[in-house]
C-alpha cells in the first residue's frame, strides 16, 4: 500500500452520529462529528465516561457499522470497504485489555496476525523477534505464553502485533489504562516513534492527562454536543 503524504488526511469523519440500537430516536451518543486524521501525527480522543470515545474508535476500526454520516479511509467510504481486510491490513488495533490469544505464545500471536494478513515475509521468526525488540521485549519473551507475561509486556506484544503487517494507522483504546506510570511512558514513547519516525497515524482513546500531554492533537468528545 502506497504511503500518503504527511499533510493529506488518512481518515475523515463527516457528520458522523451514533445512537444505540434500542435508544430513542434523538438519543445520540454523539452527533455530527466531522474531523480529519493525518499520518505522522499522534491523536488523543478524550472525554468523560459515556461520551462515546470507545464507540467512536469502534466506528473508525470498522467493528461497528451502524452509524450515520460518512467515514472515509483514504477517500474510500468505510461502509463500502471489506472490513476484515481493512482490519488486517490498514489499521492496527491495541486494546486496554490487550486482547491476545492466551493459549498462544507472544511469538505465535504476532505470527497469526501476519498470517491473517497474508504477509509473505521470508524469515517470519526473525522479523517477529525484531518487532518485539522494537517494543522492548526479548527473544525469551517471545517464547512465553502471553499469560506468563506482565500487563506491560502483554501490551507491548499487542502493539507489536498491531504493527506486524505495517498498517498506516494505529488505533489504541486506553492502551495504558492498566499500566503504571513508567510503563505508560514507555508505551507512549513507542507510539510517538511510530507517528513521528514511521509516519503512522496514531489515535489513542485515553483518560490520562499524561497521555494527552504527549500527543500532537487532542479531540475531546462532549456527549451529544458537537466535537471539535
Amino acid at each position: 500500500m502506497a504511503r500518503v503524504k504527511k499533510s493529506e488526511p488518512i481518515l475523515r469523519l463527516e457528520n458522523v452520529s451514533y445512537r444505540y440500537k434500542d435508544a430513542a430516536k434523538d438519543d445520540y451518543v454523539f452527533k455530527d462529528i466531522s474531523y480529519s486524521f493525518e499520518p505522522g501525527k499522534i491523536y488523543a480522543i478524550k472525554g468523560k465516561s459515556g461520551s462515546g470515545k470507545t464507540t467512536l474508535l469502534s466506528l473508525i476500526s470498522g467493528l461497528e457499522t451502524k452509524y450515520e454520516g460518512k467515514i472515509y479511509f483514504r477517500d474510500k467510504d468505510l461502509s463500502k470497504v471489506k472490513l476484515d481486510k481493512y482490519r488486517n491490513s490498514n489499521i492496527g488495533i491495541v486494546f486496554q485489555s490487550y486482547n491476545l490469544l492466551v493459549h498462544l505464545t507472544a511469538n505465535e500471536n504476532i505470527m497469526l496476525s501476519m498470517n491473517i494478513n497474508g504477509m509473505k515475509e521470508k524469515n517470519k521468526k526473525e522479523y517477529v523477534n525484531q518487532l518485539l525488540e522494537s517494543v522492548g521485549l526479548t527473544k525469551e519473551h517471545a517464547k512465553r505464553r502471553v499469560l506468563k507475561l506482565s500487563g506491560g509486556e502483554q501490551q507491548r506484544v499487542a502493539i507489536a502485533r498491531s504493527l506486524s503487517y505495517h498498517p498506516d494507522m494505529i488505533i489504541a483504546d486506553e492502551p495504558t489504562g492498566n499500566l503504571d506510570q513508567e510503563t505508560e511512558n514507555d508505551i507512549m514513547h513507542i507510539f510517538s516513534d511510530l507517528a513521528h519516525k514511521e509516519n503512522k497515524c496514531v489515535i489513542i482513546v485515553t483518560h490520562s492527562n499524561n497521555v494527552a500531554k504527549q500527543v500532537d492533537e487532542v479531540f475531546e468528545l462532549k456527549g451529544t454536543k458537537k466535537g471539535l
Binding site: 476484515d84 481493512y86 482490519r87 488486517n88 497469526l112 491473517i116
Partner: peptide, 9 residues
Amino acid sequence: GVLRTIGMR
C-alpha cells in the same frame, strides 16, 4: 472476538 477483531474472516 479477538480473531474477528484482528481481521480473520
